[in-house]
């Protein structure tokens, strides 16, 4: 399942994932955003793993934001944009 979101004034945020037993699995964030330190990408993937498939966007954004260390720098990407991309990946599957 694949979702893309071009954050207004930002960059492209892409999510690839599966759903297993009602939960997000094999979550992979990618895109042309800027994120430092680069290990934050793995932190975000890990944080989304196991979230309920029916979690709403606001809840997912909070979960991602809470997982970020104080020194994380985001440019062209945000917890909210990631949540939109997750939601789009899930919607695409239900529409198919």
């Amino acid at each position: 399942m694949h979702g893309e979101y071009k954050m207004p004034g930002g960059k492209l945020v892409v999510i690839d994932l599966e759903v297993r037993d009602g939960r997000l699995a094999d979550v992979q964030l990618s895109g042309d955003f800027f994120l430092e330190p680069d290990s934050t990408l793995a932190t975000i993937n890990r944080t989304l793993e196991g979230q309920p498939e029916h979690a709403d966007e606001a809840a997912l954004a909070v979960v991602v934001r809470d997982a970020l260390a104080a020194d994380v720098m985001m440019y062209g990407i945000s917890p909210e944009a990631i949540a939109v991309a997750v939601h789009r990946a899930l919607q695409q599957e239900s529409a198919a």
């Binding site: 892409v14 990618s30 042309d32």
Partner: peptide, 30 residues
């Protein structure tokens, strides 16, 4: 870019056909 998906961004077959090497840099972006 550092965070781009190779599969999503590059047509590997076309790159090979044109003799174009694909590399990943240390910075984000496109």
């Amino acid at each position: 870019g550092r965070f781009q998906s190779l599969r999503n961004e590059v047509d590997g077959e076309a790159a090979r056909r044109h003799g174009i090497e694909v590399v990943r840099r240390v910075s984000g972006g496109g």
